[in-house]
Computed example of a mutant assay.
Amino acid sequence: MLKTIILLTDTVQQQQPLANLLREHNRGLTFCSALRAADLGAIEADVLGDARLVSFAADVAVPEKFLLRLGYGAYKFYAAPTQYPGLPPAPDECDEDPRCYSVIAQSMMIWPDFKKVVGLETVTIPDGTVAAERERMVFSRLAYLFWQMSGMIASEAADLPGIIESSDGRRPALAMMN
């Protein structure tokens, strides 16, 4: 039974609104807050079997051992320019600001081939938009995607349905890894 959502966010101010939204869909949830990988390590091991990790706009590497202990998976909400899917561009790679971004909800797995996209939207930035407004537009779409998916995130489902996933949806067995 899903009992705990571990919220990994970029700022502490994001924690309460996200928790409140998820609690609307599942009043029985408890929440653990994390801003860094060290915060994840401080969570009691017996909590993880009934927990789901949700990373929202956080650029934190989650340890593999932590992911393996989660009973209800882990999902990452992030934004990326479409010309660099999955990665932000290096500062010297592009003189202009990107005009199109993807906001993505993706499963977090230790096996890259088994990650799947569970939510996706595109944001087109009008010409002449200043950097602060561009960031606001992209963040607003990311928050909207989270809002749309909040019912599924707070649900008992052990695995959210993918809209883009590998052709073989099986999780590798230990024998496959050797």
Rank of each mutant, 00 (worst) to 15 (best):
E93W: 15
P17S: 01
V12M: 10
D92N: 11
H25F: 15
A58C: 12
A131C: 03
R52G: 08
S55Q: 10
C94V: 07
E135F: 13
A74W: 12
Q15R: 07
V118Y: 10
F56H: 07
G49Y: 11
P98W: 11
I43G: 07
M109D: 12
P17D: 00
Y72T: 07
M1T: 03
D92M: 15
E133L: 13
G28V: 10
I5F: 00
P81M: 14
M1K: 00
Y101E: 02
S140N: 08
E64P: 10
M108K: 06
A45G: 03
C100H: 13
Y144V: 06
P17K: 02
I104C: 14
P98A: 12
A132Y: 05
V123H: 00
R136T: 06
P126V: 10
D95T: 10
K3I: 07
Y78W: 14
V12F: 14
Q13P: 04
F66M: 15
R23K: 10
I125L: 08
K115A: 12
V54P: 00
G28F: 13
Y78D: 06
L8W: 04
F31M: 09
L40Y: 01
K115D: 13
D59E: 11
L48P: 11
D50R: 15
I5D: 02
F114G: 07
E133Y: 02
L142R: 03
F114C: 11
G71W: 06
A79P: 01
A80E: 07
A105C: 14
V12L: 15
Y84W: 15
K3H: 10
V117E: 14
P89Y: 08
I104L: 13
D39V: 06
A38C: 04
L29M: 02
I125K: 00
A132T: 03
C32N: 01
D50Q: 15
V62E: 11
D59R: 15
S140H: 08
L142H: 04
A131K: 04
P89G: 01
A34G: 00
M108T: 06
R141C: 13
D59F: 14
A45H: 08
V130A: 10
T122S: 13
D50N: 13
T9I: 13
A37G: 05
T129H: 00
V130S: 05
D50F: 11
A58T: 05
A79I: 00
T129M: 03
D92I: 09
S107Y: 08
V130G: 07
R52S: 07
F114Q: 11
L22V: 09
L18G: 04
T129W: 02
D127L: 06
L35C: 05
Y101A: 00
D127M: 00
Y75M: 03
Y75N: 01
K3G: 08
G128R: 01
Q13G: 09
I110P: 09
L35I: 14
T82L: 15
L53W: 04
Y78Q: 10
L22Q: 11
V47L: 12
D127Y: 05
Y72V: 13
G73R: 01
Y84D: 08
K115V: 13
N20A: 12
L7W: 14
I110Y: 15
P112V: 11
T122N: 11
A90G: 13
T30K: 12
D50K: 08
K76F: 15
T4E: 05
P81E: 05
K76P: 03
D92V: 13
P63C: 05
